[in-house]
Amino acid sequence: MLSSEEWGIVALSLKVSLVAILLTLPIAYGLAWQLARGRFPGKVLLDALVHLPLVVPPVVTGWLLLILFGANGPVGRWLEAAFGITVMFRWTGAALASAIMALPLMVRAMRLSIEGVDRRLEAAARTLGAGPWQTFRSVSLPLSLPGVLAGAVLGFARSLGEFGATITFVSNIPGETRTLPLAIYAALQLPGGDAMVARLAGISIALSLLALILSESLARRGHRHAGGGDGA
């Protein structure tokens, strides 16, 4: 049904989104933890900053990435000099753009699940002699895990759909940065490209639907697990 070119586009999209989410996961969890439990000055500001990519025009995010991570940008130059890594025009750049766009959704889902952890269970662990790290590892983390996975899947879905920041930052290179949305955009401009648009759009919708259902069912399970009372 799909041509090998189209399979390539799907595979690239999955790779970009997967890497984006794996990279963001620990960062998002740390931020979610701070926002759920932390008490520090500037928490409101941090909260707003984390959510910024959700509301700022994606083309602004793409432009900022371009001037920071481009070959002439301060971060881009440093990455190149220190580690020999270039993200400009590379699929890694597409992953970076996706990661930033997915971060707010991931932090939101994780924060809810961390806030839902019954703190009496943590207190009980402490009275039984567990240290803070052991309490986190054996109580807090497992209880919030379904929410963490729900957030990751949601972020994955968001990152599959990322368009504006990506095309602004790493342009539209077949096999390198041309993910599903960019391929659909390019095919839209081809006379007779409608069939390809329809196929790729169908895949986009199917993948998103799958991810949303998975994320929602994980979130529900998480609620049952960590929720204080209904049989946890």
Binding site: F89, I167, S171, N172, I173, P174, G175, A186
Partner: peptide
């Protein structure tokens, strides 16, 4: 061919 960065229009 493989090194072309495709812009969405000529100004890009």
């Amino acid at each position: 061919e493989r090194q072309v960065a495709r812009g969405e229009n000529v100004r890009a």
